[in-house]
């Protein structure tokens, strides 16, 4: 699945530390390219979470800070309040964002902090070896759900876009997928739009990317993408859940 030509200035030359076929690399690339195209590399600050992307500080060409597990949106809040002229984004996995960091995520969204959250959903805890995530699918096995996720005991997969779009204030919420070249192109548009909104001071933008974890799912990368298409997309439908800036622009036009 080669979608990219050449290299982007938005990423460093460092060799990615992800497993072969892991889509974290694709997500990095989309953000790197968008930063480059928007000409914001020098004024952007990225936030690396705790998860497989903990090493993102090696890869994004902007300034990067690595922060405690789940706290990225709070750190981003502090940063953005300290330097409103900078573009601040977080890059977080499902465990980081939707388990330990749920409170930080919801409250940063509710305040519509002018930050961008990139959320890579691979339905597992990749870094620590495949434990159950809040996004793990019903019946899906994980090392801490050895008999498969029982929703009556551990709840249903949490749909973060849907939950956050219940809030009044966030500006832009979209779920995209990284499962095919076509979807990646679409994802790129969402990533760039989110950073553009951030640059324009429109408030919180949130892009969830449906991804895979071939290593912990125990599949080859291709099979993992097929599996995700069949099993994740029905539970995590793609689409725009909120786009206040676009609606406002439309309303203005109508006037």
């Amino acid at each position: 699945m080669t979608v990219f030509k050449g290299r982007t200035k938005g990423l460093t030359d460092a060799k990615l530390s992800y497993c072969p076929g892991c889509l974290h690399g694709v997500a990095h690339r989309l953000i790197g390219e968008s930063m480059e195209e928007l000409g914001i590399i020098e004024k952007t600050i990225g936030i690396a979470p705790v998860g497989c992307s903990v090493f993102a500080y090696n890869f994004f060409a902007c300034d990067v800070i690595q922060v405690p597990h789940g706290r990225a949106p709070a750190v981003a809040t502090g940063m953005h309040r300290a330097r409103p002229d900078r573009i601040v984004f977080t890059y977080q996995g499902d465990g980081d964002l939707a388990a330990i960091g749920t409170a930080e995520t919801i409250h940063a969204a509710n305040r519509s902090e002018n930050i961008t959250i990139f959320f890579v959903n691979n339905a597992t805890y990749g870094m620590t070896g495949g434990q159950m995530a809040p996004t793990t699918l019903p019946g899906m096995k994980a090392t801490t759900a050895p008999y498969g996720r029982d929703v009556s005991d551990t709840g249903f997969p949490m749909r973060l876009c849907e939950i956050l779009s219940q809030l009044e204030m966030p500006n832009y919420i979209e779920r995209v997928s990284l499962l095919s070249p076509k979807e990646i192109l679409k994802a790129k548009k969402a990533v760039k739009k989110a950073l553009q909104y951030n640059t324009d001071g429109k408030g919180l933008s949130f892009v969830e990317m449906i991804s895979t974890c071939p290593t912990n799912w125990g599949m080859d990368p291709l099979k993992a993408r097929e599996w995700a298409r069949e099993n994740m997309l029905p539970i995590f439908p793609l689409g725009v859940f909120k786009d206040r800036a676009a609606e406002e622009a439309k309303e203005k036009e109508a006037e």
Binding site: G70, G129, Q131, P134, T144, P146, T154
Partner: peptide, 23 residues
Amino acid sequence: SELIEYMAKKMPLVDGTFLQAES
């Protein structure tokens, strides 16, 4: 992690409670 994973496997077999907390 092997500790939490062991509990995940064994607690249900002895009618115990294993719960992975959100934090």
